[in-house]
Computed example of a mutant assay.
Amino acid sequence: MLPVVSPLPPQLDPVVRHLYVHVPFCPTICPYCDFHVLTRRAGLVERYLARLDEEARELAATFRVDLDTVYVGGGTPSFLRDEELRALAHSVQRHLGWGRLENTLEINPGTVSAARAAHWRALGFDRASVGVQSLDDATLRFLGRQHDAAQAAAAVQTLVAGGFRVSGDLITAVPGQPLDTDIQGLVDLGVGHVSAYTLTIEPGTEFARRGVNVSEDDERAGFERTEALLTAQGFTRYEVSNYARPGQESRHNTAYWLGRTYLGLGPGAAGHYPSPVLTVRRTNPHLHEWLTGAVGETLPIDAEEYVTDALFMGLRLQHGIDLADLSRRSGLNVPQRYAAPLRRNVERGLLTLEGDRLRATPQGWWVLNRVVTDFLEA
């Protein structure tokens, strides 16, 4: 059972308005993936759904919840059978409600049909995040994807026609990838949002065991070429790796970047929760331990860690972060407390400060980890 929390300090909203739900099941495990995923086994999904319903009830009893957004990710949520996803959605809606502004479902192209798209819409999902990754068959084979380019294109077209706001995921810096063709293809399919992430080789993945490498030159070339092509097509780069047409930004992910609190539901799900001190981060245990009712690792966040977390996330956004608002929320005088790293990074051309608005420059985006480390060491 989750601990009951006391009232928050007055500077933070005591109501949690965002929910992430993790579905750990995938048909196969991609060689670059380091998320908590596994293939389904007999009876496992049923046990997952039963425990999910219990945890949703516990969250509802512990926190004040009034949801603006819900994001169901994984894993492959669309890999769930229709009745399974219906049970998941009904558990969320019964105990926690549903997002007023946005409800996103992560979708694998190989799971899409017109009938299933209509079913997802009927459940209340209005935004689809589609794991296209590439529209080139050779690139998809290298990435270990089970769909081909034709399936990906058909899936996006079906979801657009079905009334979804559609985001296409794209992996860049893949050896031999025709990036220009991938980007133009996504735009032509009618997506309103593109998430473009550099291929990253994480320890423990199949790619790491194979010795696959991504050069910094290829990473930077993909980084810059993606921006050039998408902005030329009318997309705005509103976050380091995310581009949108006007009004198509991800409201749920923007809440992360703005440092808002959110609930984490499901095995391996992370949450950022209100607490009597300031906030708490908790990561749920993996599936088999989670099924027993175990509570994951809990990390209290003090004012200084809250600020550096907020800087790391907020500086990913094109409009940056309001230091006066951050001072109000954290209880620290941020410009005064971090005057030295602010001055250094402005002088280096990595940050700009206009009034209370702190932004990363394009060069600062490229070395954002280094910038935030300077604040951590202050």
Rank of each mutant, 00 (worst) to 15 (best):
E58M: 08
P341D: 06
E249R: 13
E84Q: 15
H18I: 07
Y256M: 05
P274W: 08
F223M: 14
H119Y: 03
V174K: 00
V45Q: 00
P276C: 06
V70F: 04
E102S: 09
F235E: 03
L49W: 11
T172L: 09
H22V: 09
R86K: 14
T76C: 09
A154C: 09
A155D: 11
Q157K: 12
A270G: 12
A270W: 07
E206L: 02
V280E: 14
T373S: 13
G247W: 09
G144P: 08
F312R: 13
P267L: 06
L67N: 10
T139E: 03
L358T: 13
A221E: 15
A117L: 06
D356G: 00
V214N: 00
L311M: 09
P276Y: 11
H319F: 10
R127H: 04
D309R: 04
D137T: 05
V156F: 07
T261S: 14
G190Y: 08
S195Q: 09
V130L: 03
P362M: 12
L2E: 12
H252C: 15
S195W: 09
P3K: 07
Y256V: 11
R281A: 00
A61P: 01
G331F: 09
N345K: 07
I107Q: 01
H90K: 14
E239V: 11
H119S: 06
T236M: 06
I301N: 00
P7I: 14
L96M: 12
L67V: 13
H95P: 01
R165S: 15
L59Y: 05
L8Y: 01
A87H: 13
S167H: 02
G271C: 08
R17D: 02
A270N: 03
L88T: 10
A153C: 04
C26A: 04
T69K: 05
N345F: 15
A232L: 08
V166Q: 03
V174L: 02
D309N: 07
L265K: 03
L342T: 10
F25N: 02
P274L: 12
V130T: 05
A378H: 12
W365K: 12
P77H: 13
A149W: 02
L263E: 07
R282G: 03
D182C: 09
